[in-house]
């Protein structure tokens, strides 16, 4: 399987503090890559760097390169909003806009210039279907999105991300605020989505990484300690630091 994102010798500083050190990683296409590691290890920073969300933070300096489908995402020719259309993001807490379910999903396509009602209807339905929430909300598309449950809101946010047809979906602890049933729905959904999308997910839930991901990257103190197939990482990790962390004996 080819890689869709290549990271080469990437370093990131917040002012004087180096948060990411010489990262080299190839994110495999149409698969799920889990980023694990203790708090502050840089995994979320790394995730946000992949669609340049860190550009918004003052004092951030980046060296090295990240190549999305061969193009350096930091090059001047790259349009950041186009990059974020290709590489979408879902956050830890569901954050629907305070508007109708329909408008939440239609928001992205509208900002990218789609005005036709017929076309928008199609996109909204497809995105909600892909996010496995269509059957639950199809009769109340005009209702406020804040009125649905947390698990539904998170799937709505996934639908909103899918509506602009990205190729990569970045997820930052997407189930940490959800109950076990909603969590398992999202996990099923993530595994379904990899048929069409590449997914990179940050998770603190080790069992979730084992259950859903194909590849796992273990971060520690801003370094990528180990990257490999999830089954290998969780059955016979090569690095002692990985073993100590995943078996809960870190420190």
């Amino acid at each position: 399987m080819g890689s869709i994102i290549s990271v080469k010798d990437m370093c990131l500083w917040y002012g004087n503090y180096q948060a990411l050190k010489d990262l080299n990683i190839e994110i495999p296409e149409m698969s799920i890559t889990a980023l694990i590691g203790p708090s502050g290890c840089g995994k979320s920073t790394f995730l946000k760097t992949l669609n340049r969300m860190n550009d918004l933070i003052p004092g951030v300096k980046i060296s090295g390169g990240i190549y999305y489908e061969g193009t350096d995402i930091f090059s001047n020719e790259v349009d950041v909003s186009h990059l974020r259309k290709e590489i979408g993001m879902v956050f830890q807490h569901p954050n629907p806009f305070p508007m109708s379910i329909y408008n939440n999903v239609a928001y992205g396509p509208r900002t990218h210039g789609i005005k036709s009602k017929v076309q928008l209807d199609e996109i909204v339905e497809q995105a909600l279907r892909d996010a496995a929430i269509w059957d639950e909300v199809k009769d109340r598309l005009k209702k406020n999105a804040l009125g649905i449950s947390g698990g539904q809101q998170q799937r709505l946010c996934i639908a909103r991300a899918l509506a602009i047809q990205p190729k990569v979906l970045l997820m930052d602890e997407p189930t940490s605020a959800l109950d076990p049933i909603s969590t398992s729905r999202i996990e099923d959904l993530i595994m379904e989505l990899k048929k069409k999308y590449t997914i990179v997910i940050v998770t603190h839930n080790m069992q979730q990484a084992v259950r859903v991901s194909d590849y796992t990257a273990f971060f520690l103190l801003g370094e990528l300690v180990e990257f490999g197939k999830t089954d290998d990482i969780f059955s016979q990790p090569k690095d002692k630091r990985t073993e100590d962390y995943i078996t809960g004996r870190f420190g």
Binding site: M206, F234, S235, P237, E243, I246, T247
Partner: peptide, 9 residues
């Protein structure tokens, strides 16, 4: 404990 790696082995 939902063991992994050497513990699971």
């Amino acid at each position: 404990q939902q063991p992994v790696a050497r513990d699971l082995r």
